[in-house]
Amino acid sequence: MKCIHIEDKIVDYIEVNLSEQEIELITNHIRTCESCKNTLEQTKEMLNKFNLIPDFELSEDLNKNLDEMLESEEKLALRNGIVSLGNNKVWGNVFKIAASIFFLMFGYVARGYIERDAQQNIAVNENQQRNKKLMLGMMENNSPSERIKGVGYFEDFRNPDIKIIEALVDRMKNDSNSNVRFAAVEALSTFSESELIKSSLIDVLNLEPNPSIQIEIIKILVSSKDKRALAPMKILLGKANTTKYVKDRINIAVSALL
């Protein structure tokens, strides 16, 4: 067996993937060949280093993208007449090892980023769950200041779930304190495109006695250009106890919506 054949099979030799006969032949050759002995030692050392790198599984999408990328690179190489290194077994192995190192390192770095993102997401989710619990608890407190503080936590939610929105809608409709209702309306205005929020604002417009809150609701409904708001606005316009400045605001709003 020549040196070139030994180098070709050195990884399989280390990993004992050869027949007994081949193993015996390579062992005998290495005993007498200093070059192949060095190759064996270097390869073993490199594989040991590989084993120290933690396993990382690429996502299905990344795998698919990688396969597609390799496939297109192969086609491009054939089209451009790039010479395969496959004929030269030594360079072929070096290339394979280098490529392996590259992909392992790439995977390692990618894993770092993915893990960091995952940890950040977990921290954000945990924080939001904690804030949700805190917020829902505070909104039931006897103290209006605490309820307003609870409503303020709404700012922390990028995608508030239905339970949080319902709790805020409940504050807006039923809280005995005007400032808490005002705070709830302001908080809900940040998600005024939500159908539940829009229909709740329309429902509450005729029930809300405070002129400042009425005006705030009218502003939100006009900005969302929802023509369903016209009916409650017209009712409010006809009420004797609606203040003049609310009526003025409604007249402007009605012409904006028509």
Binding site: S143, I148, N177, S178, N179, V180, F182, N210
Partner: peptide, 25 residues
């Protein structure tokens, strides 16, 4: 937490408690 529909609101603080928000409307 103070709210008046049409009345004036006059408040003199001798200190401001950091425990919770103040809203005056």
């Amino acid at each position: 937490t103070a709210n008046s529909l049409a009345g004036e609101v006059n408040i003199i603080f001798n200190a401001v408690n950091q425990k919770g928000p103040t809203t005056i409307r």
